[in-house]
């Protein structure tokens, strides 16, 4: 399987990343992708977010993302996965995360894409700090993210 995992400051080209999953091959029948963006209207802050800073744990981040992709591979029939997560200083409207999965059939692509995002949210070592007119604050983890990840746990 073709796996690309990148943790980077610069933006990425969604079209080029999606196209990369099927370039030069004729066995891909489906590509599902997700793009996460920085929102201005965070519920945790009374005033609009002006800047979002992403911190991570270099080394562990790539390892954690690799483990998540590996788990996805054991659950679904996949042909390729691309995960890109930005770090550093971002502003509302900026792309922050990208996950795309290619497979022969859409069911595997959709499910694996959602699984990877749910696990990334709760297991990959990234932390967001919001800055608004009221100052800076670290974003609290959300229980709904734990619930979303728990859905995938086998009985």
């Amino acid at each position: 399987m073709m796996v690309v995992i990148r943790v980077q400051e610069p933006d990425f080209d969604v079209g080029a990343e999606v196209a990369g999953l099927s370039a030069g091959r004729d066995d891909v029948g489906a590509i599902a992708s997700f793009v996460g963006l920085v929102r201005a209207d965070k519920a945790s802050s009374d005033s609009a977010v002006q800047v979002m800073t992403l911190e991570h744990y270099p080394g562990m981040t790539e390892k954690a993302l690799g483990d998540i992709v590996e788990q996805a591979q054991t659950r679904w029939q996949l042909l390729g996965v691309r995960v890109i997560h930005r770090v550093g200083r971002l502003v509302p409207g900026d792309r922050i995360v990208f996950v795309a999965v290619s497979a022969s059939h859409r069911g595997d692509a959709f499910a694996a894409c959602e699984f990877i995002m749910d696990y990334l949210k709760t297991r990959a070592p990234f932390w967001k700090k919001e800055e608004s007119e009221q100052g800076g604050r670290w974003v609290d983890a959300r229980e709904t993210d734990d619930t979303a990840a728990a859905r995938w746990e086998r009985p």
Partner: peptide, 10 residues
């Protein structure tokens, strides 16, 4: 060893 708050990426 690393200590950190719950993660909030994505």
């Amino acid at each position: 060893v690393a200590f950190f708050p719950p993660v909030t990426g994505g």
